[in-house]
Design a protein around this nucleic acid. Sequence first.
DNA 1: GTCTATAATTAGATAGAC
DNA 2: GTCTATCTAATTATAGAC
Lengths: 190, 190
Amino acid sequence: MVGMDTRTALLDAAEKAARARGYDGFSYADLAAEVGIRKASIHHHFPAKADLAQALIERYTEHAYAMLDAAAAARSTGGARLAGVIGTYRESIDGGNRLCLCVAFCMGRDSLSPGVLAKLDAFHVHVAAWLGDAFALGASDGSITGVSDPVAEGQACLALMEGAQLIARAARDGTRFDAAVACLRERIAV
Amino acid sequence: MVGMDTRTALLDAAEKAARARGYDGFSYADLAAEVGIRKASIHHHFPAKADLAQALIERYTEHAYAMLDAAAAARSTGGARLAGVIGTYRESIDGGNRLCLCVAFCMGRDSLSPGVLAKLDAFHVHVAAWLGDAFALGASDGSITGVSDPVAEGQACLALMEGAQLIARAARDGTRFDAAVACLRERIAV
DNA sequence: GTCTATAATTAGATAGAC
DNA sequence: GTCTATCTAATTATAGAC
């Protein structure tokens, strides 16, 4: 990746580290080693670590929202949309170690700024609502079975996937995610 | 609590802090301030922080296992057992900030010893199996509706409750937990 | 934009007096 | 069992040269 700008390289390294070890689990020294500059130079791009956290969550959530929009546009049934998002959460585990950034940010030293916490919460609300729409669509088109309250199903589905990521990480075994979401996947009709 | 031994006071303070901020989120200095001794004195009881983590998870899981045994003995239907455990996870949130110790330990600096990680994983396996038994019982006694695969339901239920705690903590709002588990609670027949 | 050098703080941990 | 004093290492962050 010759010519990739340093700021983007820093964000990539920080996202990777944060999703593996949490916000307090990486330091400017780690990023410096990975990107190949000195840690003091990072402060030129992100004066304080809080600025980096803000940039991280903004880039992450905007990217996630775009992916959800694309998934809704590309898939016509509720079941297909649901299966796609479950697959995305599953893929991100990467051998039991890489979590959704918003799962990784949930635990830590209370060192996240109010602005970051607000984005974190907004992400949960947004994804749960998107999932609720998918359940509503799946109930009407017959692609998801047993739906009675789509809004509640959306909130449950998000919690299930986040908890499944957590358990998979603790066991360092991605198949734990599959075991936890097996019931949900069963409900998706072909 | 005059006369309470220092070791127990330290474990209590550490558990409270760990469940609020994670394993890397509290220091010996924090415990010293809360218990009222100097931080050097803590090393007399727990030479290294890893020893404290080991003692913490052992006390926590043994206590949890005893509670599960007691709940199984005291409640005759699967639905009653399930409702009891959901209630326990809900109560532990305490305003959106206190998580199950095993949820809190899932994220961090990779600083937990293999021994602690093994206990953490064993806890997940144990609780998921206990929940699976509750679903099986609930399916046969009619106290839980819509059960097809009790083992898979147990694994899903644990992930759901852990994710619900995470989301509630991120929002600093315990009612988020209720929203996430509403579908599950609906399935418990009176 | 990146560097060297350094400050200020905090972490987990140890030695030895009482 | 608890204390004071100290140590080493790591962290975030700043100043100023190139």
